[in-house]
Amino acid sequence: MLHIFCPHCAEYREEEEFHAKGQAHIPRPLDPEALSDKEWGEYLYFRKNPRGIHHELWVHAAGCRKFFNMTRDTVTYEIHETYKIGEKPTVTAQS
């Protein structure tokens, strides 16, 4: 069971209150019409799927219902940090 700190509620809550929503920091293309099929396909479907440090989007579904980001290790499941949308992660695979 993951214990997740919601940066909006500023509290630890149990995993069941949350939903994982996949890779974080995927910017929506500013001019979709200008994209090639390959670029559009990659935006829609291709995802980073690392073994190790991953930045992902979560929603506090049974709580404040707000979205936030998490840096988590996909092997140990250790949560390094949670942070609000628009903020940058402080823990990265390089650091």
Binding site: M1, L2, E15, E16, H19, A20, G22, N49, R51, H54, E56, R72, T74, V75, T76, Y77
Partner: peptide, 14 residues
């Protein structure tokens, strides 16, 4: 499946 990505060959109790 568990909703989150994982390589841990174990899942969560819920």
């Amino acid at each position: 499946i568990d909703g989150y990505n994982g390589y841990g060959q174990r899942g969560s109790y819920p």
